[in-house]
Design a binder for these strands. Sequence first.
RNA 1: GCCCAGGUAGUGUAGUGGCCUAUCAUGAUUGCCUGUCACGCAAUCGACUCGGAUUCGAAUUCCGACCUGGGCGCCA
Length: 430
Amino acid sequence: MRIPIKSVTPETGHAEICGFVHEVRDLGGLAFFLIRDRTGILQVTIPKKKVSEAVLAAAKAVSRESVVRISGPVKAVEKAPGGRELVPETFEIISLAETPLPLDVSEKVSVELDTRLDGRFLDVRRPRVAAVFAIRSAAMHAINDYFHKEGFISITTPKIVAAATEGGTELFPIAYFDKEAYLNQSPQLFKQMMMAAGCEKVYEIGPIFRAEEHNTTKHLNEATSIDIEVSYADHIEVMRILEDVIVKTYEYVDKTCSDHLANMEITDFAVPKGPFPRLPYSEAIEIAKKKIEDPIKYGDDIGSAAERAIGAEMGGHYFVVDWPTEIRPYYAMPYENDPTICKAFDLMHPRMELSSGAQRVHNHDQLVQQIAKKGLNPESFDFYLKPFRYGMPPHAGWGLGADRLIMTMLGLSNVREAVLFPRDMHRLVP
RNA sequence: GCCCAGGUAGUGUAGUGGCCUAUCAUGAUUGCCUGUCACGCAAUCGACUCGGAUUCGAAUUCCGACCUGGGCGCCA
């Protein structure tokens, strides 16, 4: 029976392990093999005069990163890593790795991200990279767990859609039999429809697609979005949920991922403290005005330079609230007492935007008016508008970028590092 | 879409017109080595993205193509 390397201790007695050959150090009469599985690395020591011919032959033939099965007695040896080593009675090469390797798994020389992504399966063998995805998995678990505990219904909505409904971004056209179709940019309209369906609290974690030709460290053409929509809630309420999700996710990672964080050499993992500051858009602009050279005025979008300047000033997660209605999508609810600003918000990490959301317009006629005001044709929104005519609860929601959440949580320099097989304008394979 | 910077062994790099038969590290192959832990030692192998131009001479200059990294805009 194979046992995980982590559970091989000086007291184990006899063990069978499977894994990759991490490193080989041949001293002549004595050879050391480091065998790695998902749980750790074990030293296998071969005193050449004392092992069988078969073991010797396999040890000589094996290459780095080959898959092997090894069994034998475990001995407590002080000078071995982890205080124990295995001396093989059997040494089976299950799958021989070709040489040379496309990238160095043992990290003796650095590798560029592009090379890493070309050979992602090898890249993820590196413990520091595997840790990113183990932590991502834990984070997603915490998020799912939070929503289930809070009574949300998990939904799945179509990624193949008929029209460019939301506006504001380029979509990927696809061939759908004899019709024109697109990959969906967000579940926005569908999750709103689920409010009309009476589900009250829904969430979806799924892919979104944007055909923008951007070339930055924080954009992808296929991203993972965490989306919620809540009936009878306003923007204040869903901001509280968002803050809660962020804090609880960090807490869960902090509590359960210490080994993975150690593999990434993260020693100062900090759980953000709620509540996050609510910074009105107008004040954000004032901060940016003082700190950046490029002119910025009320009514402008907050660009990258301004975003960084404000982030430095705030020092942690914060919300930008009370945006001008003009620069937010048509579905954002304007304030009753001042319709020039609306109940929309962005959640910011000092490095970048993580999420945006709003209380939505739930009145049909007002929505039609706002669509028209944005220069869009309400007739092409019929499937979306229809639910608003048969009883639509007031509602609010947000979308949170899962990849950016992991990127900022782990201090990764490129969002592609947080995604197993990222899609950008230059990369379609693997 | 606009702008900038790049493309040298499997990997990461040095090299700004002749001293390049191209540096260093890592790797691979072979040999030596019984306590390595980035093992050590020796030998060997392995590269200038492609096409054109300038020049006596191009990895190096110019033009084009292809590929890559990054910034902006916009966004998650």
